[in-house]
Write a protein that binds this DNA or RNA. Structure first.
Length: 227
DNA sequence: TAGGCCATCTGGTCCT
DNA sequence: AGGACCAGATGGCCTA
């Protein structure tokens, strides 16, 4: 996934030119298959989610107790693992009424499913406001790509805002664009803007990543480059 | 076929 | 006790 690793840092900060091209590399191409194929109509095993996606077949088999052949072996393996960890299936668990336990498990599963759907809805909302190619011929951004794109888009906007303020200050005061930091405007949070690449020579990527996240990004190709 | 991405289940942990 | 959150495991789908 080379293109994904190259997302961080400069790639998305060069949004003013070739933004669409940069994001096109992120998108999946033609209409997203899995989402369309899976659909969001069939209720899950919990049966309480009208909008739930079609459940994973193996998961359904396990949830509904329909195992056979290889699936049966896999099911037994998982159960043995859980027993070793003291999870459900162990001696303590055997004391619990299976029906009650099953019902509890299903409700927990449904809740978790709902939570993940909410998370995906939020990601969809984020995708909707990100300026990447929205055409139907371009696949939806992956989750990680969405987050990285959003992060870099925010940084780019902050940089643009900072430069705009510098320009306004220059026009108002007749000072040079390379004004010292003391003339730097305040951020909306009341602190001096500290954009490491808005003035002077750009810093090496690891420095950028460290400046914004505290640590070099594992997903940034520059952070992973050999010196 | 390998790798990427995803949905789901599950058990653990923390919080209310 | 119940819910939210998280991470690991599993397996399906798709693309290069």
């Amino acid at each position: 996934m080379a293109e994904l690793k190259s997302l961080s840092g400069d790639a998305y900060l060069a949004l003013s030119h070739g933004y669409a091209a940069a994001t096109a590399g992120l998108a999946y191409g033609a209409a997203r298959g899995p989402e369309a194929a899976r659909g969001y109509g069939a209720p899950g095993p919990g049966g309480d989610l009208p909008a739930a996606p079609a459940p994973h077949p193996a998961a359904v088999a396990e949830s509904s107790g329909e195992q056979s052949g290889d699936e049966d072996d896999a099911f037994e393996q998982r159960r043995r693992r859980r027993r070793r960890r003291g999870g459900p299936g162990g001696a303590a668990d055997a004391r619990r009424r299976p029906r009650e336990q099953r019902s509890l498990r299903l409700s927990i599963n449904a809740r978790e499913r709902r939570r993940m759907h909410d998370l995906n809805d939020a990601l969809d909302g984020l995708r909707a406001v990100l300026p990447y190619a929205h055409s139907p011929s371009v696949r939806k951004l992956s989750k990680i790509a969405t987050l990285l794109l959003a992060k870099n888009y925010i940084l780019m906007q902050a940089q643009a805002l900072d430069e705009m303020r510098r320009l306004v200050a220059y026009l108002n005061q007749g000072q040079g664009l390379a004004a010292p930091v003391a003339a730097a405007p305040l951020t909306p949070f009341g602190q001096a803007a500290v954009y490491p690449f808005s003035a002077g020579a750009p810093l090496p990527c690891p420095d950028k990543c460290a400046a914004f996240s505290g640590t070099p990004s594992a997903l940034c190709k520059h952070c992973n480059e050999k010196p």
